[in-house]
């Protein structure tokens, strides 16, 4: 019999983040347990605390209280060890527009400490995975929105991370690019990469996620397999209806 704890790759316990000058927590006691090899969707309306949670898990923010560990390493105290295990595909197109995709990937591969002899192979593999090999030597600034998103994804997987965080990776792109990205994410997951994923597209989450957590006001309000959550609900036919039922239809405008 295997120890269930051994399969947990990421855990948070009573995670709290209060930004300086704010009296309301962005994350208010969030507890998560994410198993290795899953696609985990972190869903919530604007201002729910999704990006803050991912920022803490990616060592970009210090939690105000609570703990978060990835592969047994505390994200606050062992940030260096955590950074070697994680990949991030941020919401912004975090690439150098005046460099080509290949030059961007080579640079980030070095920053990710990919072995020197492996860099060219990994760059070629990642470019092929996101189907940018034919325009790899063009400047990123000349790319379409979908191509930029795919290049953004390629950088996140260069070093074959154990866990990949994706913050709305399909926002604002055409159906073809979106479909390709989702297919590649599933492929990556099959190769053993755990994915933690935020999106506002509920159909997307229902399509690819093994498990979702719906958060609102920094707290978890539902968690589980998306199909099962829909099935167990009273009157919802899909995840979007369940999401609106749980979080309400009130607009969630927020100030940055």
């Amino acid at each position: 019999m295997t120890d269930p704890a051994a399969d947990i790759i990421l855990t948070t316990e009573n995670l709290v983040k209060i930004y300086p000058g704010s009296d309301k927590p962005a994350v208010a006691g969030l507890t998560l347990n994410i198993n290795r090899g899953t696609i985990y969707g972190l869903l919530g309306p604007n201002g729910a605390g999704k990006t803050t949670t991912i920022s803490i898990l990616c060592t970009l923010l210090q939690p105000s209280s609570g703990t978060a560990t990835i592969l047994g390493h505390d994200v606050a105290r062992q940030a260096g060890a955590v950074r070697r295990k994680i990949g991030l595909v941020p919401q912004d197109i975090a690439l150098y527009g005046s460099l080509t995709a290949r030059e961007n990937l080579r640079y980030f591969a070095r920053m990710l400490k990919v072995s020197g002899t492996m860099i060219e192979d990994r760059v070629a593999e990642c470019l092929q995975l996101v189907e940018l090999q034919d325009c790899a030597d063009q400047r990123v600034s000349t790319y379409s929105g979908g191509m930029k998103r795919r290049a953004n994804l390629a950088v996140g997987i260069l070093h074959q991370p154990d866990i990949l965080f994706l913050d709305e990776p399909t926002v604002g792109i055409d159906a073809q690019s979106r479909n390709l990205i989702l297919e590649r994410l599933v492929e990556l997951n099959r190769s053993g990469v755990t994915l933690v994923y935020t999106t506002h597209y509920m159909d997307e989450a229902q399509q690819i996620c093994d498990e979702v957590a719906i958060v609102d006001g920094g707290k978890m309000i539902a968690c589980g397999n998306p199909s099962r959550l829909v099935h167990d609900s009273v009157s919802c036919e899909n995840l979007e209806e369940l999401f609106l039922q749980l979080t309400g239809k009130q607009l969630r405008d927020r100030m940055e």
Partner: peptide, 13 residues
Amino acid sequence: EEGTLTRLMTMPV
């Protein structure tokens, strides 16, 4: 502003 610095800060650099 472009987010590359944020990305770099999540890397072992």
